[in-house]
Design a protein around this nucleic acid. Structure first.
Length: 474
RNA sequence: GGCGACAUAGCCAAGUGGUAAGGCAGAGGACUGCAAAUCCUUUACCCCCGGUUCGAAUCCGGGUGUCGCCUCCA
């Protein structure tokens, strides 16, 4: 049984889908007014892996992640760039797709855009009006928070507490200070749509309610995003959705912890926002992916170059093993496993079981990666020390890594196709091998040094020379 | 002021009642022409003080500290 922590109950709960065998997930996606930053990336990555894992566990998953393509930020940015909001959205949706792909994030089943769902949004607001939960005010529509009694159940605060802490400027026209906009009256020069209340545009929370229910039905199995969305965004979504349907909106609320940079919150004002686009110019995106998954999704993580370097080394250790496995498999035969080999195979079975256990328990990717390292050590021992290795021992191990990699996605997939560069390297290696046979160490070392400067590392093994590209200092 | 989270080795990070996973870094060793890779060994009074328990990093109470939310934010 899979357990997930639910922000709403503050407990781990069994994952029990609304419909047997199916899971509907909605994740709050980016506002497409800029490149996404590494904090966003963490959320996308967590949901990507969650979705893959649930599929691996046999669920039919429908995963929806929206693009917010109309709001204050969009309008402001479009204005700055002197382009239309539509153009801005197109530009950064493409950027999202490129950066997400670099990080190995698979496209969601649906990436709905707010501006493409205006009718659904309007219908939802109409329903709220009917239910007496919303009111019109000079062309704006507000959700009346006091009329939704359980408001605050997600963030565990009541209305009084929230109002007390409110530092927001109070709009005296509103019936209650916490009332929030569902629909905003048109302003000159801003995008707007026809509605029963005149031209205008949706408020910030309503799109997620409308689109999630449009694709996944009235009750979602899993809904989430970054921790900072708990209040007010998700609280408001609950109010809107449950206010309209009178049904539970989401069974599991999953919130991803913050990513800080050098111990500080990432924010525009501190000027420390790091976009994925910038970062992957310097470092392997797979290292970033590994780094994010090596902590539990609910823990805050601190990003630093130092941490990333450590992650890079760790990941390299696994990739080295995979390389060795693939290489060795090219020349070993099957055979009856002896006791030590049987023990290794038993350990593999235990590893797979352990992997499922820790992942089932609130999606513990940190423990999951530890399983890979433990198996790596045992396999390395076998690879280095055991005289006659067997295909039927090595292949299942490689299969396991590939299987896990379908979920985690940070390991190297296999041998790269031979390129011109590789041919050149092979020739240099041959020259060096000849020198080594002649005990011409000076020449041999010179060639190794020369390649090293090009970030190509040679390793002499009993079975010949192996080379790999390393990151080096960039 | 209200609500909440976290505090585990030099660094990062699992572990929610039976005396501490994993990674990085360091030290020593094996292997190697030298390296690299790999393996072995080695590094923890689990923030403090009480309590519950045969037994607590793990539960309860009280401190201290860090961070977050209450305003746009992933």
């Amino acid at each position: 049984m899979i357990k997930l922590y639910n922000t709403s109950s503050r407990k781990k709960e069994n994952l029990q889908p609304v419909k047997e065998g199916k899971i509907g997930i909605y994740a709050c996606g980016p506002t497409v007014y800029d490149y996404f930053h590494i904090g966003n990336a963490r959320v996308f990555l967590v949901f990507d892996v969650l979705r893959r894992y649930l599929q691996y566990r046999g669920y039919k998953v429908t995963f929806v992640q929206n693009f917010t393509d109309i709001d204050d930020k969009m309008i402001k940015r479009a204005d700055e760039l002197k382009i239309s909001v539509e153009e801005l959205a197109g530009r950064y949706i493409r950027a999202y797709q490129e950066d997400a792909e670099a990080l190995g994030i698979l496209p969601a089943d649906y990436h709905p855009r707010a501006t493409h769902h205006i009718p659904q949004i309007i219908a939802l607001i109409e329903k709220l009006m009917e239910n007496n939960l919303a009111y019109e005010l000079e062309g704006d529509i507000y959700f009346h928070v006091p009329s939704f009694p359980s408001y605050g159940k997600l963030s565990h605060q009541n209305l009084e507490e929230l109002s007390l802490g409110a530092r927001v400027e109070i709009d005296e026209r509103k019936r209650h200070p916490m009332d929030f906009a569902l629909w905003k009256k048109e302003k000159p020069g801003e995008p707007s749509w026809e509605s029963p209340w005149g031209r205008g545009r949706p408020g910030w929370h309503i799109e997620c309610s409308a689109m999630s229910m449009a694709y996944l039905g009235e009750t979602l199995d899993i809904h989430g995003g970054g921790q900072d969305l708990i209040f007010p965004h998700h609280e408001n979504e609950i109010a809107q959705s449950e206010g309209a349907t009178k049904r539970l909106f989401a069974r599991h609320w999953l919130h991803v912890g913050y990513l800080n940079i050098e111990e500080e919150k990432m924010s525009k004002s501190l000027g420390n926002v790091l976009t994925v686009r910038e970062l992957i110019k310097e470092i392997d995106p797979m290292v970033l992916r590994f780094f994010m998954l090596s902590a539990h999704y609910r823990s805050p993580i601190n990003f630093s170059r130092e941490q990333l370097m450590q992650a890079g080394k760790a990941l390299e250790r696994l990739n080295t093993l995979l390389y060795k496995l693939r290489e060795r498999l090219e020349r070993v035969a099957e055979g009856v496993p002896v006791q030590e080999e049987q023990e290794l195979l038993n350990f593999l079975t235990a590893s797979r079981k352990r992997f499922l256990e820790v992942m089932d328990d609130d999606f513990n990717t940190a423990e999951g990666t530890a399983v890979l390292f433990e198996l790596a050590r045992k396999t390395n021992v076998y690879l280095d020390r055991f005289p006659e290795q067997k295909r039927n021992v090595l292949q299942p191990i490689l299969d396991f890594y590939n299987e896990v990699n379908n979920i985690f996605g940070f390991l190297q997939k296999g041998f790269e196709p031979v390129s011109a560069l590789e041919k050149e390297i092979e020739e240099l290696i041959n020259t060096r091998e000849k020198a080594r046979r002649e005990k011409n160490w000076a020449l041999a070392d010179a060639i190794r040094e020369q390649l090293k400067e090009r970030n190509i590392l040679l390793e002499d093994t009993p079975h010949g020379v192996r080379w790999k590209i390393v990151d080096g200092e960039k």
